[in-house]
């Protein structure tokens, strides 16, 4: 616009210079940019405040009785020396095992089927729609499913098995969707090259697709594992124990506990937060449990995200 008015007029030239070099302050632009930046700033502020709050609440408990806290159990008084997250850790450990043993193989296999085998037909589109919609179903609803399938009337048989399978079902769509994405990213030249020398479909999947997609699949599985570890609502529905749970004599790896009443890290936190209304000391205990949970979850997420970024960069 300004260019058309240039005509030996020094004032206009100056203005053009100003426009080009942005000396004339672009107030609106600046304002807009800061507005946007403040959104990110707020998000960061929330995160930092949250971390500080959790740490200041939980740190005293952790630093005072670090080992006891890990081995301790659910108690009725916060001042009890035996108070701790031992049972929660055990439950969460087994839930992770369920997810690894059920969701990972089934989810990856389903993704392989959808990307490599499925032809465009009615069943394929039904599977596709089912997975997409399952990913958006609220987690409590999975809890209702677990309640109906495994516990029915909750007459005392709300077991770790029910919780583990429910969470495995919950993260299954995440595993399928992320694995399918990773498989889709495998260059078709690799497929063609392998088929071209007489590989069977299974050969191609085994020797080309899965190795190439492995980092992407691993990212997805880690994210879903982190999700399962932090999820509480479905466990509450299937009847995880929030208040008192008799300690078991046997160790973490004992298979008996699979068919026993159970709790898990997020459930321990919920329970203690609720108890804090009655006994203030449970607040810091919950904070300490959160620190432990967050360390696991954030660690897993960071590994997953780093892995993804690394491979995205490497493959352009």
């Amino acid at each position: 616009m300004a260019l058309s008015t240039i005509g030996g007029n020094g004032r206009t030239t100056a203005r053009v210079d100003a426009e080009i070099y942005r000396q004339g302050r672009d107030l609106k632009g600046r304002g807009f940019q800061y507005l946007l930046l403040s959104a990110l700033f707020l998000a960061s502020l929330f995160l930092i405040t949250l971390l500080i709050q959790v740490l200041t609440d939980g740190w005293p408990v952790l630093s005072e009785r670090f080992v006891d806290f890990f081995t301790g159990t659910l108690r009725s008084r916060s001042s009890d020396d035996a108070l701790g997250i031992g049972q929660g850790l055990a439950g969460t450990f087994w839930i992770a095992i369920f997810v690894i043993a059920l969701s990972f193989p089934i989810g990856i296999a389903a993704a392989v089927y959808l990307e490599e085998y499925a032809s465009e037909n009615f069943i394929t589109s039904v599977i596709d729609v089912a997975i997409r919609n399952l990913a958006g179903v609220p987690s409590v609803v999975y809890g209702l499913l677990g309640l109906a399938l495994f516990v029915a009337t909750r007459d005392g048989n709300s077991t770790l098995f029910a919780g583990g399978v429910t969470l495995a079902i919950l993260v299954l769509p995440i595993v399928v969707i992320t694995a399918a994405e990773a498989i889709r990213a495998v260059p078709s030249s690799l497929r063609e090259g392998a088929y071209g020398v007489g590989a069977t479909q299974w050969d191609v999947i085994r020797t080309q697709i899965l190795p190439y997609a492995a980092p992407g699949i691993l990212t997805g599985t880690l994210l879903s594992l982190a999700r399962a570890i932090g999820e509480a609502a479905p466990l509450i529905l299937v009847g995880a124990i929030t208040d008192r749970l008799a300690p078991r004599g046997d160790g973490l790896l004992s298979l008996d506990q699979i068919f026993d009443r159970f709790t898990a890290m997020p459930i321990v936190i919920v329970g203690w937060v609720q108890e804090s209304g009655r006994d203030q000391g449970f607040g810091p205990a919950a904070g300490a449990a959160i620190v432990v949970l967050l360390v696991f979850v954030i660690l897993m997420n960071s590994i997953a995200v780093t892995l993804r970024n690394r491979f995205e960069k490497k493959r352009g």
């Binding site: 690799l190 063609e192 071209g196 080309q208």
Partner: peptide, 12 residues
């Protein structure tokens, strides 16, 4: 009947 493609496609 083997095949060689337009773009070299070595396996990783």
């Amino acid at each position: 009947i083997g095949m060689v493609f337009q773009k070299p496609n070595p396996f990783p």
